[in-house]
Each structure stands twice: as C-alpha cells, then as structure tokens.
C-alpha cells in the first residue's frame, strides 16, 4: 500500500464528507425556504442575502444553547444515540461512485472511496443500523414519549427494510452485480434502470422516505402526538445531530436513488467528449444535479402529503409494498428468462 493511495483516499473522504455536510446544511435552509414558497410565504430571509447565512446562524444557536441531560437518563447511551445517528449517516456515502475516473499526473483516480463488491448491501446494512441511534436515544431519555418514538422507529424501519430489500433484489436481477460502480457503468447512454424497474423504483423511493423518517413516514418524531418523539428530551447540539443526520440521510438517499435508478453520473452525450477529465467533471456535475432534484422532491413531498396513521403505515408496508415487490421479482424473473 503506497502512501499516495492513502493520501488520495484521505482527500477524497474529506471532500465527500465536507460536501455532504455542506449540502445537508443548505438542505435545512432549502427546506425552510421551499416550505415558505409552497405556503405562499418567503421563508427565512434576514440572515444574509436571501437568508443564505441562516444555516450558520442555526448552527451557532444550537451550539451555544444549554445542554440538558435528564436526571434519570442513562448518560452514556443518551450521548451515544445522536452520535450513532450522525456516524451512520456519514459513513453511507463511502461506496457511492461520484463520477468516472479522473486522470491526474498520469494516474487514474477513482471518484469512489471504496469499490467493495457488495456495495448496495453495505448501504442497506448501514441504513438499517441508523435506527439504533433513534432507539438508543429514545430509550435512554427515560421518557414515555421518547420510548414510543423509539418503538415506532424500530417497527417502521424493519417493516420497510423488507420491501426495500425485495425491490433491490429485482434490481439486482437486472444488473447482475452488487457493485455500485458496475451498476453506474451499465447505465451508460439511456439504459437507466428506472426504465427497466419502474415499480421497483417506486417501492424503493417510498421505502427511502420511510428509512429517512421523512414526512409521510415521520411517525418516530410525530410532534402532534408524541411531543418530539425520540428527541423530546434532547437539547443543544445533540438535538442538532439528530436533525442534521436526517438531512445527511436525505442527501445520501438521493445519491443512492440517482445512482441505482437514474444513471448515476451518466449524462446524455457522454460518449461525444473524448477528454476523460472533462467527462469526469461533467459526470460529477450531472450526478449532483440529479441529487439536488431528488432532494427537492423529498422537500416537495414533505410539504404536500400529510403523515400516515400508524395502522395505515403498517398496512402500506406489509400488505401492499411487500406483495408488490414480490410480484415485481417474479415478473422481472419471467421477463429475463423469456428474453434469453
């Protein structure tokens, strides 16, 4: 293992981490701005021009607020909860291919932290780990509303993970590989997977909403009935971590959706450009445009669709999405066999 490899990966990791934190920061502002637009308001506009310094102001506010740990809370687990949430949100982006290979100083640089050959499953595993942050935090708060939020988070995540996994299986039958890099390469031109797997995409989309606890599925933090759900007892930056982790998850989910179903870094007319570095830069830009569109979609859905009732949530997960994804697998299998 040479030193350049390590330096290259370190630079890449810090760049990705920085970019995902930056995008998560500005997603909080975009959420509030767009919420305003959807409701005929203008949103925050006082901190800097158009309110672009609002995330900094929020950050300073959260950092300087008083930190409260409830007397009867388990201190270690209480701190572990938000840290784990943040940690799992940050490590998901490791396997996403951000663009085609760059060629710098005669060396090819892969714009991906780790090309492990079980890439999708890695994301799937880390996402399923994300619920521990909520569960541990909710349980350690020693508060019935937090506990109810934690329980809801657990059952919701398990229910929707099943449908998500089954929709991924149908996708894998089409692609024949688990590596996100190979999936990206396969989608060159207009061979986007969403064209071959529309139902799978729909199921995956719904499940990503459920896994990130975004609005139609935000029952763990449902403020109307559970005060604040799992983060009722949290204050200061520990609360900030929970809120921030949600936005990082939105970013990563958008990246995964774009990579798996919408061609990743591929863009129309990619083969016309011969310079690989130009292709790489344009590819990264294309991927980020797709990601930003998905983030906008997440926000758009949040301010359109009201929250599910708990029984509706379970019914949708178990009675509709899981059978639908199994049918999707069967149909996909049949089509593949008939084509051969």
């Amino acid at each position: 293992m040479d030193i350049y490899f390590i330096i290259e990966k370190l630079i890449l990791i810090s760049a990705i981490l920085g970019v995902s934190l930056l995008i998560a920061m500005y997603t909080t502002l975009a959420e509030r701005k767009f919420a305003g637009f959807f409701q005929d308001r203008v949103g925050p506009n006082r901190a800097g021009p158009w309110g672009i310094l609002q995330p900094l102001a929020d950050g300073v506010k959260l950092f300087t607020k008083e930190e409260i740990i409830p007397t009867n809370a388990g201190t270690f687990l209480f701190v572990l909860g938000p840290s784990l949430s943040m940690f799992t949100a940050c490590i998901t982006s490791a396997v996403i291919p951000w663009g085609p290979d760059l060629t710098l100083f005669g060396k090819t640089v892969a714009l991906q932290v780790a090309d492990i050959n079980v890439g999708i499953l890695y994301i799937f595993g880390v996402v399923s780990l994300g619920v521990y942050g909520i569960m541990i935090g909710g349980w350690a708060s020693n508060n019935k509303f937090s506990l109810l939020g934690a329980i809801r988070a657990a059952s919701q995540n398990i229910s929707y993970e099943l449908a998500m996994g089954l929709s991924i299986i149908a996708l894998l039958m089409v692609t024949g590989t688990l590596s996100l890099r190979e999936i990206s390469i396969q989608q060159e031109g207009w061979h986007w997977n969403v064209l071959y797997q529309p139902i799978g995409f729909l199921i995956f989309l719904i499940c990503s909403f459920a896994e990130t606890n975004r609005t139609p599925f935000d029952l763990p933090e449902c403020e109307t009935e559970l005060v604040g759900g799992h983060h009722t007892e949290y204050s200061s930056m520990k609360l900030g971590f929970y809120l921030f982790a949600e936005y990082i998850n939105v970013f990563v989910s958008s990246a995964v959706l774009a990579t798996l179903y919408f061609g990743g870094y591929n863009f129309p007319g990619m083969h016309l450009i011969s310079n690989p570095n130009v292709v790489a830069i344009l590819g990264v830009a294309a991927l980020f445009i797709k990601i930003l569109l998905f983030i906008f979609f997440f926000i758009w859905i949040r301010w359109t669709i009201p929250r599910f009732r708990y029984d509706q949530l379970m019914k949708l997960g178990w009675n509709i999405l899981i059978p639908l994804s199994i049918i999707n697998i069967v149909v996909t299998g049949l089509v593949i066999i008939l084509k051969q």
Binding site: F34, G36, F37, F38, Q39, D40, R41, V42, W300, I301, W303, T304, I305
Partner: peptide, 19 residues
C-alpha cells in the same frame, strides 16, 4: 391523488407571495 396534490403545491410554489 398524490400527483394531483404535488401539482397543487407546485402551483403555489410560483405564486406571488403574500408576505
């Protein structure tokens, strides 16, 4: 119905703001 709702919110997105 969901798409209809998305359309409604989108039409508000570009509407003149009341602020």
């Amino acid at each position: 119905a969901i798409f209809q709702g998305l359309g409604i919110t989108m039409s508000h997105f570009f509407r003149k703001k009341a602020t």
